[in-house]
Structure formats: C-alpha cells, structure tokens
C-alpha cells in the first residue's frame, strides 16, 4: 500500500502569537526570528523578535534539522510543529530552518497580513 506522508500545511504565524498557548499543540506553523542562542548539546535554539516594543522569544527544537550552520544574530525562518513544554511554554519542533538574513521583515509582515486579510475577505 502506497501511503502518502505529506505533512500538514505550515501556516505563517507571527512570533508573538505563540505566547498564550492559543495555538493547539501539534499545529504546523511557520514563523521567523533572530537566532540569539543555540545550545547544540540540547538541540535547542531561541529565536527572538520585537513587536510593539515587546521582546518575544520562541524556543525551537532543532534535532531534525541538524547539523545546520548557526549564525547568531541572523534571521531564520522555521517550519515545524508546536509542542507544549513542561514549563508551560510552547516549543517548536523544526522540520525546516532556513537562514534568511537580510529579509525585509516589514515587507514580509505586510505580505502575511495581506494574505490573511485576503483569505478572510474571500471566505
């Protein structure tokens, strides 16, 4: 039996949307952030971003995408599934992690928002 193993769609989420566990565990998401810390022994990375002068941090489990070249301070795009941690936070188990340093963040945010509003309107 030929079974297709396509993963679920990773929809864009802003880093500041992960905080309150509003997203169900196991949801596929894609998000972005600046790599501020990488702990290879724990396969853990932290992506930070700022939104309305508040700093947000997303922790990422990187064991699936290793080895990768961690550039501290560079922007990354992550695709993966959310997992709730024991400490009460949300962690992202990354399937894809691409360095996109130099991306026009404002434009990306605008594009994401445009796409969302387009879907809302046509729905």
């Amino acid at each position: 039996m030929y079974v297709r193993m396509l993963p679920a769609t990773a929809v864009y989420h802003f880093p500041w949307e992960f905080q309150s566990r509003a997203i169900a565990e196991g949801t596929s998401v894609r998000t972005f952030g600046r790599l501020t810390c990488y702990l290879p022994e724990e396969s853990k990375a932290f992506l930070t971003s700022h939104h309305v002068s508040v700093k947000y941090q997303v922790s990422v489990q990187t064991s699936y995408v290793e080895p990768f070249n961690p550039i501290l301070g560079a922007l990354y795009i992550v695709l993966g599934e959310t997992e709730n941690t024991e400490e009460g936070g949300v962690m992202l188990r990354a399937r894809v992690m691409n360095c996109v340093d130099g991306v026009d963040l404002a434009l990306l945010q605008k594009a994401i928002n445009d796409q969302r509003s387009f879907f809302q309107k046509s729905a």
Partner: peptide, 25 residues
C-alpha cells in the same frame, strides 16, 4: 513553495510542496 517532503523513484522525484496554504505532491 517550500519542499517539505521528498521521495525518490526511478524516473522521478516526488516532492511535497508547502506554500503556507496547503501541501501538494
């Protein structure tokens, strides 16, 4: 879209492509 799945066959590759709205082979 981004390749999120890959399988090689003799004559072709089968890629799962994700554009943020859906995934298709």
């Amino acid at each position: 879209g981004i390749v999120v799945f890959k399988r090689e066959r003799e004559d072709f590759y089968s890629y799962g492509v994700d554009d943020g709205t859906g995934v298709i082979n």
